[in-house]
Design a protein around this nucleic acid. Structure first.
Lengths: 209, 209
DNA sequence: CTTTATTGACTTTCCAGTCAGTCATCAATA
DNA sequence: TATTGATGACTGACTGGAAAGTCAATAAAG
């Protein structure tokens, strides 16, 4: 009655994830339209037919791939946020560094952004999901931090609307730079991150009275 | 001996520009790989064969299109810069607003960015050109402004390296938002621009002594 | 022997690139 | 002014190859 794990049965359980991983690499390397399913298959160590056992079309494969790879980008952001101690300025600093590590430097986060920019028009539902599940929660977290700082009198009380987006914008800049120039971007990334945090803090902090 | 300008002769002179314009629209709408040359031809009001009278391959057409559309993005930036009067803070403000108008809000500038992100890997030479002819000069101009402000004692003297990139990063953010969400982005753009300039200035200005 | 995950040859569709032919224009001639 | 022939911009049917999607056959596990 109980099925023992044989080789093929085990593969069957692992195949979808293997294919999704291969699909990520392939689509990231050449873009949706230019990627052949045979490329994906070869990367996954199977043949094209196998892909169609698990995914009905190229489009569905792409959608599933984006979903599986964008899930978890913000997974433990809340936890991280809870773990950073101290004043609001310090917590915001820590969270920006988390963002750089998780969503900018990490290849996965960057390539998701490329998919949104390059192929979002063909997958509007994916864009809407990404906005709902990633962008909005992220904005919420940073807004919370900033509001907290304002309430504590630590940040300026007269911050203009949309300040939060301006604060995180430079993280996206670095993502884009890496997308365009690859892993040897014409930017000193460490200095850039420092400059960003420094400038954001100076702009946010209340003038000493 | 002298050839008079007939209808077809006049078209011949205008064809390349017409085709490049159609190519911009087509490639911007669907991306390089997914665009058919017949789409381009239809948009230009000709047939596919005509395109090959002026451009040898799809790749060459794409390259020429990007070149012709990125030229002029910074054309009169120097002039603008010279025309903005006043203190460094005011000049920088003005230049940032120029950037938003010319390179972010303007569809042409945005789509060039999309080409770089989506298809730059297939056209590395184009990326290098764009960096040399657009990014570097732009950085130079802003660096000049900031240095001037520092020299005048108007801006902080201890600005970290890479500050200039951080200062213009939010403009790129807005470009990307428009690329992903189209012409109805989930951002109050006016408020965003104001917040950007406000925050950048607060971060740059020397503390009143 | 049965079940089923996997294969790879096959079909179909699509598109970059070609080229022999068309037709508008012009210039020469009547 | 009308005719004719040369020029060359433009066309669209065609070719070859590539890639999405299918399915009967295979072979591994039980």
């Amino acid at each position: 009655m109980f099925k023992c794990d044989g080789f093929r049965r085990r593969r069957k359980a692992e195949r979808p994830a293997e294919i999704l991983e291969a699909a990520f690499d392939a689509f990231a390397a050449r873009g949706y339209a230019a990627t052949r399913l045979e490329d994906v298959a070869a990367r996954a160590g199977v043949t094209k037919g196998t892909i169609y056992l698990y995914f009905s079309t190229k489009e569905k494969l792409f959608e599933e791939m984006v979903r599986s790879h964008s899930a978890g980008l913000l997974a433990d952001a809340d936890a991280i946020l809870g773990r950073i101690e101290g004043a609001s300025a310090n917590r915001l600093r820590g969270f920006l560094r988390f963002l750089y590590g998780r969503c900018v430097t990490d290849r996965r986060g960057r390539e998701i952004l490329r998919f949104m920019i390059a192929d979002g028009k063909s997958f509007p539902h994916l864009v809407a999901e990404h906005y709902r599940d990633f962008v909005l929660p992220l904005l919420g977290m940073v807004s919370g931090l900033v509001d907290q700082g304002v309430a504590a009198g630590e940040f300026r009380a007269d911050l203009p609307r949309e300040t939060v987006r301006v604060v995180i914008a430079p993280t996206l800049f670095l993502s884009v730079i890496r997308l365009i120039f690859g892993d040897a971007p014409p930017v000193d990334e460490e200095a850039y991150v420092d400059a960003h945090i420094e400038l954001a803090m100076t702009g946010l902090l209340a003038a000493p009275t």
